[in-house]
Structures are given as structure tokens and as C-alpha cells.
Simulated scan of single mutants.
Amino acid sequence: MTLHAPPADAAPLRLLILGDSLSAGYGLAQADGFQAQLAAALKARGHDVSLLDGSVSGDTTAGGRARLDWALDGGADAAIVELGGNDGLRGIDPRATEANLAAILDTLRARRVKVLLSGMLAPPNLGDDYGRAFHAVFDRLGQRPGILYDPFFLQDVAGDPALNQADRIHPNPEGVRRLVARLLPLVERLLAEVPPS
């Protein structure tokens, strides 16, 4: 889904958002969701970018892996990978999460798509051992050559009632604004790595 129309005489960069409900804007009006707010922030900074909506609420890393080829059908220059929260909520074996994310990154690399990987933390009720093993998946994959890495998508927003919806999981419009403001420099760095066409 293209969130804003590029000028007729330009070829906008195509940025895929491969994620779950956090980037799909669960519980929010479209204009308040992550993708719409990111698109607006990029436009305000003078970037000509077409956002490709590859986010599905409730999706796991396995789901993202299964639909990646479809999401890339129209091509992409760069991608933000925001998956794993539902793996953690379901207590999925971190080894399976890592295999799925590694396959996603391998596919994107093969397609010469620049990647920003945003990590996730497991719910504390699953215990310290699981939490460490889960987050270590993202830390390892984030060290891959050519990957931009953001350790925690919900940094400075998770756990703050003023920045989250009533479910205490999904950011409210102000929480999303904070996420976008924090991630914008990394997203700009990601776009700068796309070679001229």
C-alpha cells in the first residue's frame, strides 16, 4: 500500500515495512499508525519514499517468512523488519524465531534490499532464561554485515501507560510519534545506503 503519491516525474524509493500489529497500526486510525506517521515524517524531511505495507496484525516470524516473496512482488529498495513480538508472546522456541528471521534476511540480501532490523524483548512472565535467549537472537542477527540494527522497537515506549493503548501492548498515537522520532535517523541512514538507480 502506497501511503502517499510520489511526483509523476520521480521514482520514489520503495520501503517495505515487514511487521506485525506494532507497525500495522493495530487499534489506531490509519493516520495515527506507524506507517502513516513514518511516511509523514520522511516527507517532511524531503524524502521521496513509497511505503509498502507488509505488516499483518498477529503475525509471527514464520508468517513473515511465508509471505515475504509476496510482499516483495512489486520490488523494494529497503526494508524495515519488525517481527518477533508474537513469537515472544507465544513462547516460541527462540531457535525457530532465529531460523525464520535469518531466512528473511537472507532473502532480502539476495534481492539486494537494504535492511533495518528492529528487535524485540520477550514478556517478563516467560522467565529470565527465555528472555535472554530470545533477545540474543536479535543481537546475533543484528551483527550481520550490511544490517542496520535497532535493539528494541518499543524503546522508551513499552511499559508507559501514557504512551500505550489500554491493552498495554500497542502504542497510542503519541507512543507511535515517539517511536517514529527515535527511529527516523536510522531510517534515513537506511535510505542513504540505497544505491542510486
Score class of each variant (00 low, 15 high):
Leu190Thr: 04
Asp150Ile: 03
Leu191Cys: 08
Leu163Thr: 05
Asn164Glu: 09
Val157Cys: 04
Arg177Val: 10
Leu154Lys: 14
Arg178Ile: 05
Pro171Glu: 00
Leu190Lys: 11
Pro185Tyr: 12
Phe153Asp: 02
Asp156Ile: 01
Gln155Lys: 15
Leu163Asn: 04
Val180Cys: 02
Phe152Thr: 02
Pro151Tyr: 09
Pro173Arg: 12
Ala181Met: 00
Arg168Tyr: 13
Leu183Asp: 11
Asp156Leu: 08
Val157Gln: 08
Arg178Phe: 07
Ala166Thr: 15
Ala158Glu: 06
Leu190Glu: 07
Gln165Trp: 09
Gln155Pro: 07
Asp150Cys: 13
Glu174Lys: 15
Asp150Ala: 15
Pro171Tyr: 11
His170Leu: 02
Arg182Trp: 10
Leu186Cys: 11
Arg168Asn: 14
Arg189Leu: 07
Leu179Met: 10
Phe153His: 13
Pro171His: 11
Leu154His: 10
Glu188Arg: 10
Asn172Thr: 07
Asp150Trp: 15
Glu188Leu: 04
Phe152Gln: 06
Asp160Arg: 14
Asp160Met: 08
Glu174Met: 05
Val157Met: 01
His170Asp: 07
Asn164Cys: 09
Arg182Phe: 01
Leu183Lys: 15
Val157Gly: 01
Arg178Pro: 01
Val180Thr: 03
Gln165Glu: 12
Phe152Arg: 11
Leu154Tyr: 00
Leu183Val: 08
Arg178Lys: 14
Asp160Gly: 13
Arg168Lys: 15
Phe152Tyr: 11
Glu174Trp: 07
Arg182Asp: 06
Ala166Gly: 02
Pro171Gly: 01
Ala158Gly: 02
Ile169Gly: 06
Pro151Ala: 01
Arg168Leu: 14
Arg189Thr: 11
Leu190Gln: 06
Asp150Gln: 15
Leu163Phe: 10
Leu184Gly: 06
Gln155Asn: 13
Val157Leu: 08
Leu163His: 01
Leu190Pro: 00
Pro161Lys: 02
Asp167Trp: 09
Pro171Gln: 06
Arg177Gly: 13
Pro173Asp: 05
Arg178Tyr: 00
Gly175Ser: 05
Val157Ser: 04
Ala162Lys: 10
Phe152Ile: 11
Ala166Asn: 13
Pro171Asn: 04
Arg177Lys: 15
Val187Ala: 14
Asp150Gly: 08
Leu191Gly: 12
Leu190Gly: 07
His170Gln: 05
Pro151Gln: 05
Leu183Tyr: 12
Asp156Gly: 04
Glu188Phe: 01
Pro161Cys: 12
Glu188Trp: 00
Pro173Asn: 12
Gln165Ala: 11
Leu163Pro: 02
Ala166Cys: 05
Arg182Gly: 04
Pro151His: 12
Val187Cys: 14
Asp160Asn: 14
Leu179Pro: 09
Leu179Ser: 07
Pro161Asn: 05
Val157Pro: 02
Ala162Cys: 09
Asp167Asn: 05
Ala166Tyr: 11
Phe153Glu: 01
Ala181Leu: 00
Asp156Tyr: 02
Ala158Thr: 12
Val157Asn: 00
Asp167Tyr: 04
Leu184Arg: 03
Val157Phe: 10
Val176Gly: 06
Arg189Gln: 15
Ile169Arg: 06
Pro151Thr: 06
